[in-house]
């Protein structure tokens, strides 16, 4: 069915993609091996820089004492809650702003101020107001994620083509119909992109919050490790965080794929 030339072309693409995958894996292995060798030979100080073996032992220990899953669970839970809350609040406020330009204009400067404020500065106040528990962490994550979502989504809402709005009006659509049938569908890709940013924003907020107040979670693990000068624990925490963040990112990507398949 295919010509010889096309088969050769397809083969070339296959080989190329295979090469990329292999190189990616190799890079990881080389990194781990070199790290291990350097610390075995005491070229780098294993106490400060740890080593792959020590990290694995550390994670196995966490697993044995059953602490590993508790920390992962806490951080995941906090991230999910703040992600869902942040997305919902962001969407609702952006919609209200689109609906009522007056409100949008009134709150615009306040959004800018809150957005440019380094949220970590609010940490002490949040602790005093919300206590040193999960509530404070979620508030921190929300502060970081919500404002950006509002600004992004609202921007998308207002940049919908005027001609299309005119069209909807000429077909006698009311404002709610314009919103549901034009504004939302034409902004799906912007909303999805905001979700992607939101996940990482929430994770940043959660870890920051855990640094400040918590008694559990990956951020707590890292903080605890650094205070007791247990660098194995710190780097294990970072490693687990890497995996967690990647999984969350791919979850959003798969949602995106499912949505774009529908279109």
């Amino acid at each position: 069915m295919y010509s010889e030339e096309h088969k050769r072309y397809l083969n070339k693409i296959k080989r190329y993609n295979f090469l990329i995958r292999i190189s990616q894996i190799l890079l990881f292995i080389v990194f781990i091996v070199v790290w291990q060798i350097l610390s075995d030979k005491k070229i780098i100080n294993p106490f400060i820089f740890s080593s792959p073996k020590k990290i694995i032992t550390c994670i196995i220990n966490l697993h044995k004492t059953n602490n590993l899953y508790k920390h992962i669970y806490i951080t995941t839970l906090e991230t999910c809650i703040s992600f869902i809350l942040g997305t919902i609040i962001g969407l609702i406020i952006a919609s209200i702003m689109w609906w009522n330009k007056y409100i949008a204009k009134v709150i615009d400067p306040y959004l800018t101020i809150i957005n440019s404020l380094p949220k970590i500065a609010l940490g002490p106040i949040i602790i005093i107001w919300a206590g040193s528990g999960m509530k404070a962490i979620i508030i921190m994550a929300l502060l970081i994620s919500v404002i950006v979502s509002i600004i992004n989504i609202y921007q998308g809402f207002t940049s919908v083509d005027d001609i299309k709005i005119k069209l909807m009006k000429s077909l006698k659509a009311n404002k709610l119909q314009i919103f549901k049938k034009l504004i939302i569908p034409s902004n799906t890709s912007i909303i999805i992109n905001t979700l992607k940013i939101n996940v990482s924003m929430c994770l940043i907020g959660v870890i920051m919050g855990e640094f400040l107040v918590s008694k559990a979670g990956i951020g707590y693990l890292i903080m605890y490790g650094s205070q007791t000068f247990n660098l194995d624990l710190v780097i294990s925490g970072i490693f687990i965080l890497c995996i967690l963040a990647t999984i969350m990112y791919y979850l959003i990507i798969s949602i995106e794929k499912r949505l774009s398949l529908k279109n």
Binding site: L171, P185, S186
Partner: peptide
Amino acid sequence: KIGYMLQQDALFNW
């Protein structure tokens, strides 16, 4: 009933 035809087609891509 009035129908309006715009200069641009303004079709929805989705």
